[in-house]
């Protein structure tokens, strides 16, 4: 579905992203994880067309989309959300979602009906006529998701949609993401909450200091010494091996 090859970006003296290869299979949920500053959001921005890569190429369903404008990429079916939510503050929640719906539904009333249906599906039903600026963090995260979903994407890039939420809210969002995938949307997500990653993703890519250091199933990643070192510092893997546990074990849900 999505094929990324050799993606690189340098900001002045900082190599933010170095030679990243990434594949997202159609119908899958794939996660991109890594410590703060690893280059995850920069990679997202390049894939979605917001930042022009220095090198590398991105293909969506076999079609090259490298360095196309974000609105062109959205029209091709790849839509991102923002880590720092970006509501249209002066508009109502429903009007916000309708902007997404307008991508493929030209008629205003039909777009509004679609927007209200999606908003209701994502649990924003009672808030649809409120100003978007009045939403809580959890509400704003849902709004980001609803707006992106309203564009009828085939591939959704979710940038930390769970950050800042409490465990109950995270559980709800995890359920929503599963539903979205079941409805036929492929998902690539950036996430710090390992519990969510482990329960959602089939495949995980780990970025550290701009480069990919590991890829595999959540279980394989959790046991990978390089990943543990990247998160917990040099020598951590060896210390943990002595106690026979991985830092991800407490986080991964059972069953």
């Amino acid at each position: 579905m999505l094929e990324v090859r050799g993606l690189s970006k340098r900001f002045g003296g900082l190599q933010a992203v170095r030679d990243v290869d990434l594949d997202v299979a159609a119908g899958s949920i794939t996660a991109l994880i890594g410590p703060n500053g690893a280059g995850k959001t920069t990679s997202f921005a390049m894939i979605a067309g917001f930042i022009r890569p220095d090198a590398g190429r991105v293909a969506l369903e076999g079609r090259a989309i490298t360095a196309l404008r974000p609105d062109r990429i959205a029209a091709h079916g790849l839509v991102r959300t923002f880590q720092i939510t970006q509501p249209f503050g002066g508009l109502s929640v429903a009007e916000n979602i309708r902007i997404g719906a307008f991508l493929h539904v030209a008629e205003p009333a039909a777009a509004m009906a679609a927007a209200r249906a999606i908003g209701t599906r994502l649990g924003l039903g009672p808030l649809l006529d409120r100003p978007a600026a009045s939403l809580t963090v959890a509400g704003r995260k849902r709004l980001e998701l609803a707006r992106a979903l309203a564009t009828q994407p085939r591939l959704l890039l979710l940038d930390e949609v769970m950050a800042g939420l409490n465990p109950a809210e995270i559980g709800e969002i995890v359920g929503l993401i599963r539903e979205i995938r079941t409805a036929g949307v492929t998902i690539l997500l950036i996430e710090h909450i390992m519990q969510a990653v482990a329960s959602l993703a089939e495949r995980v890519y780990v970025l550290a200091e701009g480069a990919l250091i590991a890829t595999g199933s959540p279980r394989e990643i959790a046991e990978n010494p390089a990943v543990i070192e990247a998160y917990l510092g040099h020598g951590a893997a060896a210390r943990l091996a002595r106690t026979h546990s991985s830092p991800f074990d407490q986080a991964a849900p059972h069953g």
Binding site: A48, F50, R69, P70, D71, A74, A75, V79, R80, T81, F82, Q86, P87, F88, G89, G90, L91, I99, G100, F102, L103, R147, A148, A150, T151
Partner: peptide, 13 residues
Amino acid sequence: RENEDAAQALGID
């Protein structure tokens, strides 16, 4: 007017 980045992400030229 409200948010250029978000508008562009949602397909607006």
